[in-house]
Design a protein around this nucleic acid. Structure first.
Lengths: 223, 223
DNA sequence: TTCCATATTGGAACGGCGTTCCAGATATGT
DNA sequence: ACATATCTGGAACGCCGTTCCAATATGGAA
């Protein structure tokens, strides 16, 4: 089964290309993935890559699909509320690990298989929560919007232009900036600058999920 | 006051450049704004533009600032809940009119003056809603996340790769696609495909805002 | 084993992008 | 009026995604 003539390097394949693309995206950011860096990393030429992948968009789609698949494999254990939290956290953490995911999800939501996958994962526990027919689509949409919006903002912070050595220092800087805003124009923002300091992103994200869950049970009381 | 020697064309200025950029973004999309189309539109050279604007990022920032300013001028009339709805709708409509805003807001949220402006507009009525100190930052963040997430998804649909002649046809196509999904893997998504048909984006967006408002009053009962 | 059609590869080349550079034109202060 | 600072237009640079194609590797038929 071993080919008589051994290849110089491991055979190129769509999977190997996508894997390298994800690695480049994770380590060097969205701007770090170019066909030139990719050809260098894979020790090949552009034409070879284009034989396996139609264009950069398809490459990004494939990268998104792969990462998303592992993010959405949540075991359906616990109450519907717990499951919503689990799915939400799965997406949040995936976007946190791969900030480029936020951009891609925003771009792909209109097409492709991304929307149904996310919708299914969030909608199932929503239905189990007792949301009546006719409200399930809207309710699930609201949750998905929040999840992607919050995770996206988090990702935006992650790929901030100015890199910050540690999180405390970063929060201090933003908090101080808020405290120095014009008191006439920004009274509220100034007043919550202290709350910003030392908050945990994940925890805050979950609090938001709970807020929406509370709204769901308030609007659609169980029983 | 009129200069002795009349200019061939109206004098170039930062404002005129930003104005042209917004127009190009609105009419030809994010990819339609290039320094070449801009020089053509303004009948000048690249160097002239770079004299007034540092780079493309600053140009996009300025365009975002301008559009956002008009979007956030909401008269504070009505109950706190109404005001939250008004601010949310203002942002939603602005992003609907200028789909490129969604991308820019996601990019700029970490820096610049964008975050405080939005935070202030949303946070003031949140405070008026009776949310106690220590919860205001998190609550406002949740609302902002939902607003930007939902509006962003809407914008993604707007700049869909395949242009759709009318909305009904577009919804029919997506709805049919959902109904044809694998029954084993996508039972929920299939079951809500009908709800997708004929829904109104703005209305659905507001329903989500109300859901969160209901959650806020449930978690922090007034009085 | 030899041969050939097909599958795959590497790299040169193309047009378009953001940006830089600079010679010249235009405005301003004395 | 002239010297200085401001502003302009366009050529050129390097990088991008993508296309094209000659060269190579592969696998079945003869």
């Amino acid at each position: 089964m071993t080919p008589r003539t051994r290849r110089r390097t491991e055979a190129l394949s769509r999977d190997r290309i996508v894997e390298a693309a994800v690695e480049l995206l994770d380590t060097t950011g969205e701007a770090g993935l170019t066909f030139r860096t990719l050809t260098e990393r894979l020790a090949t030429g552009a034409g070879a890559i284009y034989w396996h992948v139609a264009n950069k968009g398809e490459l990004l789609d494939a990268a998104t699909d792969g990462v998303l698949a592992t993010a959405l494999t949540a075991g359906s254990t616990g109450s519907p509320g717990d499951e919503v939290r689990a799915v939400a956290l799965g997406l949040f953490d995936a976007i946190d690990r791969h900030p480029w995911l936020a951009t891609q999800l925003a771009l792909q939501l209109s097409r492709g298989s991304v929307t149904p996958r996310i919708f299914e994962a969030v909608g199932r526990p929503v239905q189990a929560l007792g949301v009546p027919e006719g409200h399930r689509f809207t309710t699930t949409s609201a949750l998905v919007s929040y999840i992607l919006g919050a995770a996206g903002q988090n990702a935006a912070n992650a790929r901030s232009p100015i890199p910050h050595p540690n999180r405390t220092e970063f929060l201090d800087a933003v908090s101080s900036a808020w405290e120095n805003l014009d008191p006439q124009e920004y009274p509220f923002t100034r007043s919550v600058a202290a709350e910003l300091r030392g908050h945990d992103d994940r925890e805050q994200f979950l609090t938001g999920v709970d807020l929406i869950l509370a709204g769901i049970t308030a609007v659609h009381p169980p029983g």
